[in-house]
Nucleic acid binder design. Structure first.
Ligand SMILES: NC(=O)c1ccc[n+]([C@@H]2O[C@H](COP(=O)([O-])OP(=O)(O)OC[C@H]3O[C@@H](n4cnc5c(N)ncnc54)[C@H](O)[C@@H]3O)[C@@H](O)[C@H]2O)c1
Ligand SMILES: NC(=O)c1ccc[n+]([C@@H]2O[C@H](COP(=O)([O-])OP(=O)(O)OC[C@H]3O[C@@H](n4cnc5c(N)ncnc54)[C@H](O)[C@@H]3O)[C@@H](O)[C@H]2O)c1
Lengths: 221, 221
DNA sequence: AAGAGTTTGTGAACGCGAGAACAAAACGAG
DNA sequence: CTCGTTTTGTTCTCGCGTTCACAAACTCTT
């Protein structure tokens, strides 16, 4: 908002770039694990499925971490991107709604391996509270505030039915959560300062269906 | 590609608009179920979480389905959008990889209710083939070709580990599938004419983490 | 029938992102 | 030390998407 203390870490990175940084990070991790020490923007772009000019432009927002005529040091760049995104630290996360999808999410190993730690599973249904999923107790939804306070949770995941999602989001915001990942098929209203991202399977399928239909029409034309 | 037979149905709708049409459709269904007969662009925009000018412009790509001074007939507009997207017909879908996530997807009621029909669940692991999930047998992955041929499947969902995803995608394309929804955390290479959309939980979380980190920095500045 | 009040559909301005193209910088060979 | 090669970082241009603003079109009242 106001003038930052300058120093390092470039100011506003374009949103489109932010969305690609995790892809680059994953490609770098794969390269690193395969023993690659250095890579060119061309190599990395291919691994990430983007244009090399776009890749270089994206990286230039972070700083000059490459060497002309040589390329990028894989581990160094990997660290720089991880730091920029913020995944060098661990982010505590709560998941609300431990049904079909919630179970899958709780069992998802990608959380831990990418800098996120599931600190609690919450569900409104008392019959769920007996359960232990992926080594974590399912607890009553009303425990949310205490859990958020004790663990400093900033990120919440909603996997409840659509009808309950707005209520859950409201409670999350009240408790101080300021980033929400919403799997329920509904539009959430939240105050300014709270980020919401949605993952919507049926929207993705419908987009595919639209293009599929057009292909079919083109064929019969 | 070549000149279409003109007739109705407007040509190329912008991709950004296509991605929002399913949101409008869902909002219209909700309105319709609550007994609303007519709505203004303002009403619908609010329900869909977008700007009303953007909504009107989006709808204008489909045609002129509103009445000035009045608004839109909810059921009529709902049908027009559904037809444009292609969800007035039923789309057969196969899901490959019936692990944690695959189970959740198979049990997801949103498929059927939105014009998609799961015709088969496939897994490479023989120990899974005993199983029946959501009333559907889990079958060997090698049955893919036969299933696609018999059911005219155009859309495939990948829920395998990342390491297997490219192989699965290749096989799908060979069998004639031309739209893929990929849940595995990997970049897929496919020939031109095949659409791929990805749903990537860890990318979404990392984007949230980035913004969360910036908020924290702003607070301490 | 005419005027006041609504609300759509769209032309125009603007800003952001994608990609091409190139200058600057590093390296290695001779 | 100099020149050619490689590859980055950046500038420039173009196209797409968003938003504003308003004329056109419709309803309702008097
Ligand atoms: N299953 C999938 O593959 C899938 C895919 C995409 C989207 N979704 C969406 O994700 C959401 C969850 O789907 P699901 O299949 O797991 O549903 P589900 O019914 O199996 O699970 C929902 C869980 O949320 C709990 N819940 C309900 N109200 C709650 C509240 N107010 N507070 C806390 N918990 C509450 C329920 O007790 C239940 O355990 C739905 O909105 C669905 O549309 C699911
Ligand atoms: N679980 C989640 O909530 C979640 C969330 C986001 C993304 N993902 C991604 O979704 C994918 C699946 O996750 P999961 O937790 O269900 O994993 P999982 O290991 O539980 O299930 C994977 C399934 O795929 C099957 N499989 C493996 N190779 C195959 C092949 N070549 N052909 C057909 N089937 C094959 C396995 O037998 C297994 O049943 C992973 O790529 C994961 O990163 C999972």
């Amino acid at each position: 908002m106001t003038a930052r203390t300058s120093a390092e870490s470039t100011r506003d990175i374009p949103e489109a770039t932010v969305a690609r940084l995790p892809v680059y990070l994953r490609a770098l991790i794969t390269l690193s694990e395969s023993g690659t020490v250095t890579c060119s923007s061309e190599d990395l772009a291919r691994a990430a499925g983007v244009n090399s000019a776009k890749l270089r432009k994206d990286l230039s927002y972070l700083g000059s971490y490459g060497t002309r005529g040589v390329g990028y040091d894989v581990d160094y760049l990997r660290y720089q991107i991880a730091r920029e995104i913020g995944v060098t630290q661990d982010w505590p996360v709560v998941i609300v709604g431990i049904g079909n999808l919630g179970h899958a999410l709780a069992n998802y190993s990608g959380f831990r391996s990418r800098g996120f730690r599931v600190v609690a599973l919450l569900d409104a249904d008392p019959t769920r509270h007996e359960e232990v999923v992926a080594g974590i107790d399912v607890r009553p939804f009303d425990d949310l505030e205490q859990i958020v306070r004790e663990n400093g949770v900033a990120i919440g995941v909603i996997a409840t039915p659509a009808i309950a999602a707005q209520d859950v989001a409201d409670r999350m915001v009240e408790c101080g959560i300021s980033s929400i990942l919403n799997f329920a098929a509904t539009v959430l209203a939240v105050p300014a300062g709270v980020d919401v991202r949605k993952v919507d399977l049926s929207i993705e399928l419908q987009i595919l269906a639209y293009h599929e239909q057009r292909k079919a029409q083109a064929d019969t034309a």
